[in-house]
C-alpha cells in the first residue's frame, strides 16, 4: 500500500528535524565562562522540536489526495542542464556557459529557429556584460579556460 503524499512529506520533514537535532550534539562546546542562558544549541533544538511537532500534526491530519504528476523527460533534461551549468562554468567561465545554456535550453524547450536562439542568447549575454561587468564592475568567474587564455 502506498503512503499518502502528505504523510511522506511529514516523514521527510520529521527526518530533517531529527537529523538537525542530532547534529546539535556535534557543535563545539562553549567555554563555561560564556555558557550563560541559552547557548548555541538550545535554539536550534527548540526549532527542531517545533518542526517535529508540526510534522506529527501533518502526518495525523493527512487526507488522501492525488500524487503529483510524473516529471516528463523535458523536466529531467532541464534539471540536468541547470545542474550541468556549474561544471561547465568552471571550465569555460560564466558568460560563455550562459551562452551555451541559453541556446541548449531554448532548443530543448522546442525553439528550432537558430537565428532567434543565437540572436537572443548573444544579445542577453552582451547586455549582462555591459550592465554587470562594465557598469557595476562585477567580476565574473573566468573559468579554467578563461584563466588560461587571459591571465
Amino acid at each position: 500500500m502506498r503512503m499518502l503524499p502528505d504523510r511522506a512529506c511529514a516523514a521527510a520533514m520529521a527526518a530533517v528535524a531529527v537529523l538537525a537535532f542530532a547534529a546539535t550534539y556535534g557543535f563545539d562546546e562553549v567555554p563555561p565562562g560564556l555558557a550563560q542562558g541559552l547557548g548555541a544549541a538550545e535554539f536550534p533544538r527548540l526549532v527542531c522540536l517545533v518542526l517535529l511537532g508540526l510534522a506529527a500534526l501533518l502526518f495525523l491530519g493527512a487526507a488522501p489526495r492525488n500524487p503529483p504528476p510524473r516529471v516528463p523527460a523535458t523536466g529531467w533534461a532541464t534539471m540536468a542542464l541547470a545542474v550541468g551549468f556549474l561544471p561547465l562554468m568552471m571550465v569555460v567561465g560564466m558568460l560563455p556557459a550562459m551562452l551555451v545554456f541559453l541556446v541548449a535550453m531554448g532548443w530543448l524547450w522546442g525553439e528550432r529557429r537558430w537565428g532567434v536562439l543565437l540572436g537572443s542568447a548573444i544579445g542577453l549575454v552582451a547586455g549582462i556584460w555591459i550592465v554587470f561587468v562594465r557598469l557595476f564592475a562585477l567580476s565574473l568567474p573566468g573559468g579554467w579556460l578563461g584563466e588560461r587564455l587571459f591571465s
Partner: peptide, 27 residues
C-alpha cells in the same frame, strides 16, 4: 500546518553559520 512547517524550516536555516553570542559554528 504545511505553512508553519515551512516557516520553522526557514528559522532552522537561519541558525546555519557562526552563533554570534558564543562563536560556535552551527550546521
Amino acid at each position: 500546518v504545511k505553512n508553519l512547517m515551512t516557516a520553522a524550516l526557514g528559522v532552522l536555516l537561519a541558525t546555519v553559520g557562526i552563533d554570534l553570542t558564543s562563536g560556535v559554528e552551527r550546521y
